[in-house]
Amino acid sequence: MKNASKRAGAESASQWKPAADGESKKIVRLTGERGESSLMTGLYDQQKAPGKAFDLSARLRSLRKQHSITLEELARRSGLVRSTLSKMENGRMSPTFEVLLKLASGFGMELAELLKPQAFPAPTGRFAVTEGADADQIEYPNYILVPHASNLKSKRMLPFISRMTARSLEEFDDWNRHETEDFMLVLSGQMIFYSDTYEPIVLNPGDSIYFDGRMGHACISGGDTICEAVYVCTQE
C-alpha cells in the first residue's frame, strides 16, 4: 500500500509543470454540451477540485451575454471566424491553446479568467405571472408573438404564445434562422413545420417539436383556423 501511495503521488505531481510566469499549468479537460472533450494545457486555479470538468461552451455563452456582444463582434475582437465561435459555443469543437488565447483577448481578459468555472447564482424563488388580458402582441408579417414573463429580467429562456398567420410557404421571403434552441407545443389549429433540412411536418393540438433555430425553418397554419402554439426559445 505504501508503494502504491507513492506511485499515485508521483502520477499526480507529474501533471504539474512550472510556467514561465511562476504560475502552474495543468491539463484541463474541456467538455462540450454534447459530451465531446479534449485534453489541452491551460492555466488552472490550483484551488479547484482536481479532475473537475470545465464546460467551455457554457462559459463562452455566459461571457458573451455578460459583455452584450454578438458572435460577429466577438469574431472581430478575437480575430477568429464566426463559424468557429459558434461551434465552440455549441460544444462541437475543441479549441487549441492558441485559439483560447485569442478568445481571452477578445473578451479583454487573461486566459486564467477565461478558464474560470462558471458560478451560477443561488435560486431566489422568483416568478412572473402574465395575465392574458395584459399581454402585448408583437406583429410580424407571417406570425404574431405574445411575450410572457416580459417583466422578468435575465431569463435563460424566452416564452411566447405564437399565432401563425401565414397560410403558405410562398409568403416568406426567406427562412427564419437564429442562434437559439426552440420548442413549440401546438394549442389549437394545425401547424405545418417547414425546414431546409427535413420534409414538412404536420403538428396537431398536443403535438410538439424541439429544434435547432440555426436550421432554416418556417411555420404556417393548416386547416381553416389560425394555429396557436406555445413557443419557447433560449436566449441568444
Rank of each mutant, 00 (worst) to 15 (best):
E139R: 07
I161N: 02
I144Y: 00
T96H: 10
P117R: 01
L103S: 00
L115G: 08
L101C: 09
E113T: 03
L158Y: 11
F97K: 10
Q118D: 13
M93H: 03
G106Q: 04
K155T: 05
K102H: 07
M109H: 05
K87P: 01
E110I: 11
M93S: 09
A133P: 07
G125K: 13
R92H: 12
Q137M: 05
H148L: 14
S154N: 14
K153Q: 15
Q118E: 09
E89I: 04
E139S: 08
K116R: 08
L111K: 01
Q137I: 04
F127P: 01
L85T: 00
A122L: 11
E113W: 09
K116E: 06
R156D: 15
G132E: 12
T130H: 15
L101E: 06
E98V: 12
K102E: 06
R156W: 13
L152R: 02
S83M: 00
G91L: 06
L152F: 04
L152C: 14
K102I: 05
M109C: 04
L145K: 02
N142W: 02
L111I: 04
S86H: 10
S94E: 14
T130W: 04
E89C: 03
E131C: 15
S86Q: 04
G106M: 11
N90H: 11
I161W: 00
V146T: 13
F107C: 02
S83P: 02
V99S: 08
E110V: 13
T130S: 14
N90E: 13
K155F: 05
T96D: 01
K153S: 14
N151M: 12
E110Q: 13
P117H: 03
G91C: 05
R156K: 14
D136E: 13
M157I: 09
R126S: 11
V99N: 01
Y143V: 03
F127T: 12
M109G: 00
P141E: 10
L115A: 08
S154F: 10
N90V: 02
G91E: 02
M109Y: 00
M88S: 00
Q137S: 12
L158M: 15
M109K: 05
A128G: 11
Y140V: 05
M157Q: 14
G106Y: 03
P141G: 04
N151W: 12
V129R: 10
Q137V: 06
E89F: 00
L85R: 00
L152N: 05
